[in-house]
Nucleic acid binder design. Structure first.
Lengths: 223, 223
DNA sequence: TAGATTGTTAATCGATTAACAATC
DNA sequence: TAGATTGTTAATCGATTAACAATC
């Protein structure tokens, strides 16, 4: 009996967070923030599911991960649920990040104030290899030469690097980010990065998304 | 016996394409194109898997969907596999698309020539509600007033709409795209779109991606 | 031939959905 | 109380991985 309990507790630690839940929770959060702005106090899992096209039972499981608890017959307190999800995602405190690449996508990312307000990261420096862009300012952030990347990463103990370069140099940039001590890479370049174990890579790949879209459209048209 | 065969053929038509395969195939494709540029003639599923961190057996299943056939002991002809995947994704001929929103993300998308060359879609017009931006040119494409969206969609029989607006107006834009006859929407706004059945929506949501990244980083740091 | 590779079938794993007791 | 909702356990579904025969 005691053996079973020990086993259970070990097992419960090993069980990892469902990947798909991590992608749904930000969606719930953004809906909840809207509700909060509208002055709504309570919301049910069923309502969230209905609005976002997710099964209510799925919503409940996802919410359970965050530790939030609802009240039968009334649902969840909106403010409380927001807090719990933010905590769970690590968006309750803002993490500094370096961005590499001052091209179109890079500019879009820096110009986008949303991340620091709602997404838990703040882009504090931009790096670029094209000397014509170095020294310019994007949204108040100075563009620095790529040669300073590794040293500044170390000095400022930055943990998140964002790659918004052409695919051809993305691997090289990733290597430098890791050399400087980054633990997580948000990769916008359409190429697979080869990284040591333990380094977190999140690919944001337009072609993967576009592939799904165009295949479905193709099927839709031909049917 | 005959009954079984009929049943099987019906079943095989019903079986739908695994979603995850549609997201991996573009990745294989981009690697294959690189190999092709390097003059490589053959590649094995195991090699593709090794480079892209996918199980070789998974690569084979994905490739099987496209109908491509390999040669035991030699692998797949690179050029042939490229062609098969492009056909499968519908990237063998280019589909015209309208983009709504001439902000940072919109500009990045238009500035990015890659789609028409490698991704099967070409952005032919940009629409914007801010009159100060209307009339400007982005990468040679004139920015048109949003008031013309529905009519032009109909007139040009456009099937793909790209939403790169703030979340606050995205639903309204989606409604107009659908009113104009669009069948597929590529949505860059961080909001869930409510659309009639049969309309294809592919969300490209930075916050979902960022959520996964920051949660994993949080776990990594605390362990 | 021997061995590398394909392609398929079976087994496992994880994610989603269904069912239902507990609760206010 | 009755009914809406939570939260959990069991069943189903789909995706991944393992095993292996077929082939050049």
């Amino acid at each position: 009996m005691i053996g079973m309990c020990v086993l259970e507790s070990i097992v419960s630690e090993i069980v990892s967070i469902p990947k798909m839940a991590l992608r749904r929770l930000p969606k719930y959060l953004s809906y909840l923030r809207r509700l909060n702005n509208d002055g709504k106090e309570f919301v049910s899992a069923s309502k969230i599911g209905e609005v976002l096209d997710v099964q209510h039972t799925q919503v409940r499981k996802d919410i359970a991960l965050t530790g939030a608890q609802g009240v039968p017959k009334r649902g969840h307190k909106v403010k409380e649920l927001i807090k719990k999800i933010e905590e769970f995602l690590g968006w309750d405190n803002t993490e500094d990040a370096f961005l590499v690449g001052a091209g179109n996508i890079g500019k879009a990312l820096v110009g986008y104030s949303g991340f620091s307000e709602k997404g838990g990261i703040r882009i504090v420096s931009v790096f670029e290899s094209d000397n014509r862009k170095v020294g310019q300012s994007i949204n108040g952030i100075k563009v620095l030469p790529i040669s300073k990347l590794v040293n500044l990463l170390k000095r400022m103990k930055i943990k998140i690097g964002i790659i918004a370069t052409p695919a051809s140099v993305a691997q090289e940039v990733a290597d430098q980010l890791i050399a400087g001590g980054a633990l997580a890479i948000w990769n916008f370049a359409p190429i697979h990065l080869d990284v040591p174990e333990g380094i977190i890579v999140e690919n944001f790949d337009m072609y993967s998304s576009l592939g799904a879209l165009s295949r479905k459209l193709k099927e839709r048209i031909s049917s």
